[in-house]
């Protein structure tokens, strides 16, 4: 089943008076359960593609459908709901909410969705255990290491069991050990829960782990290994 479908997508940014083309006529289709890496040099358009897929931004031209939502046509409000219910985000700089504890951060999306507290707690506690984070639930993000923070971010992204998890350079701030652990975790989740992952990286270690690698250059797709299922 096709989860993500991009047709001839172009994205231009206005920087000053100049128009910068970040994505130029990209076609991409991702099926449910895939584990895709967007690779490419800096400035090649990886983040731009993820933002479009995640409904944080709209394309300049072209059409796209993500998890049944035509995000190029959606209103702000629809996009917000789309993000809340369909997508989990993992950011390079973790972006945990500093005033909330690890558990509260992890539960945040569930809370926005209006899931009752006992269910939230149960689900998050289970995930903390699964990711080896027991006992850290009540710490504030500032009291956690980078790797630990990123794990909390992953729990936050997957706790609501979204159709799709997007991770932009999720390992860039981590050492190779943590990166490997994280990647393994994502692989594990992909395999056990069937969660679709799309993430960007220029780290060969990460790219190695991917089943499918889409390489971008100057906003164009230069190669796509396709599903190596």
């Amino acid at each position: 089943m096709t989860l993500i479908e991009l047709n001839n997508i172009t994205k231009r940014y206005m920087s000053g008076n100049q128009s910068v083309t970040a994505i130029a006529g990209l076609d991409l289709a991702v099926r449910t359960g895939e584990f895709v890496v967007l690779a490419g040099p800096s400035g090649s358009g990886k983040t731009s593609v993820l933002n479009l897929i995640g409904g944080l931004d709209r394309p300049s031209s072209g059409t796209m459908t993500v998890a049944g939502c035509q995000t190029d046509m959606a209103t702000d409000r629809e996009l917000a709901d789309f993000r809340l219910n369909m997508v989990g985000f993992i950011f390079q700089s973790y972006n945990l909410i500093p005033v909330l504890t690890a558990a509260e951060n992890a539960e945040f999306v569930l809370q926005l969705q209006g899931i009752p507290a006992p269910i939230r707690h149960a689900r998050v506690t289970e995930l903390f255990a699964e990711l080896g984070m027991e006992g850290l639930q009540n710490r504030r993000p500032g009291d956690l290491s980078g790797g630990q923070q990123q794990r909390v971010a992953i729990i936050r992204a997957i706790a609501s069991e979204p159709a799709l998890v997007l991770a932009d350079e999720a390992t860039a701030n981590l050492d190779s050990k943590s990166s490997t652990d994280l990647l393994e975790m994502m692989r594990y989740l992909n395999e056990t829960k069937g969660t679709t992952f799309v993430f960007s990286s220029h780290d060969p270690l990460v790219i190695e782990q991917a089943r499918r690698v889409v390489t971008l250059h100057d906003g164009r797709m230069v190669s796509d290994t396709g599903s190596r299922a």
Partner: peptide
């Protein structure tokens, strides 16, 4: 930045 995160996570304006 934090507001951006909250919005990305699905909070409505």
């Amino acid at each position: 930045r934090e507001f951006g995160v909250l919005l990305a996570l699905g909070m409505r304006p």
